[in-house]
Amino acid sequence: MKRACVAFWRGGDSALPGYRLALVVTLLWTGLFIALPLCALIIRPWQDGVGPVLAELHDTRMFAALWTSFFSAAVAALLNVPIGLFLAWMLVRGNLPGQRIADALIDLPFALPTAVSGITLATLYSPQGWLGYPLAKMGVSVAYTQWGIIIALMFVGLPFVVRTVEPVLKALPHEQEEAARLLGAKPWQVITRVVLAPLLPPLITGFGLAFARGVGEYGSVIFIAGNQPFKSEIAPLLIVVRLQEFDYDGATAIALVLLVISLAALAGIGVLRRRFSAWGAMP
């Protein structure tokens, strides 16, 4: 043990300059900003006993809000996968006018305040909005429904898919596709085995990032959702409602359930990504 501590202090076998400082800063940052808040969130609901947590687990409003959040985030991330793949393909392989402007606009949800995007989407898709009015004429309601939540989450989650797929697509050599054609591969085989196979892991990663962002999204959703309990109320909003009611036990219990389900979903996405990575690496 003493020898290991001395080796760590001396930098071990690493030739990297500043090894000890970088490792200490990384561990300190991880502990203070990730591990410590997560531990506090896990411990806080149980400080007043098991009763408040069990009482929240019987709250049907909480389960309805959780279902709205996770279902909407999953649908939005799933719809963003083909759209993000198409946009990344156009940015990398296409040669269209205004391509640099489109490339910059994709990152707009990162820079735009979520409240601004929420107000804009609610204005566009309201019954009197530019897009909501013709849709209302056709009997389709978007604003103040779950479809409005999905559209808002698609807006904020699309850059994650595009920016995850784009570098892998840039590194994909054209020679592989040409070699597959020369060897007699059919077009669908070139697409599935040569093009899509190496893109599946980044697509799954982009889906996971968009899904994680959608589950916790608040600002861009509350303006277009309508926030009706058991219909279009999301879990982050319900946490804010519980805090406004000074129900801190209820708020932390909902946050704990949200954390557990999110970690389980991300772990499943990680396993799926590794399996598809191994499949894509097969000859």
Rank of each mutant, 00 (worst) to 15 (best):
P97C: 11
P82H: 14
L105C: 06
V116Q: 08
L78G: 10
I119R: 13
L124N: 08
N80R: 03
F110R: 02
L78Q: 03
L66Y: 07
I119C: 10
W89Y: 06
A102L: 11
S69D: 04
A76L: 04
I83D: 00
L121G: 04
L91T: 03
F86C: 05
L85V: 02
G118C: 05
L105I: 09
F110T: 13
A77G: 10
G118M: 07
P113L: 11
R93A: 07
L85W: 03
R100M: 10
I83A: 11
F86V: 10
T114R: 15
V75P: 06
P113Y: 15
S72G: 15
W67N: 09
S126D: 02
T120I: 13
I101L: 09
T120R: 11
S117Y: 06
L105G: 01
I101C: 13
A104K: 11
W67K: 12
V75L: 14
S117P: 04
A104R: 14
L105F: 11
D107G: 12
V92S: 14
L85E: 10
L85S: 04
P109W: 14
A74G: 15
G129S: 07
F110L: 14
G98Y: 04
G118W: 09
Q128F: 09
F71N: 14
G129K: 04
L85T: 01
L79K: 02
V81D: 07
V81N: 06
W130P: 05
L121F: 09
S126T: 00
S69R: 04
A115V: 15
S69T: 08
T114W: 13
L91G: 01
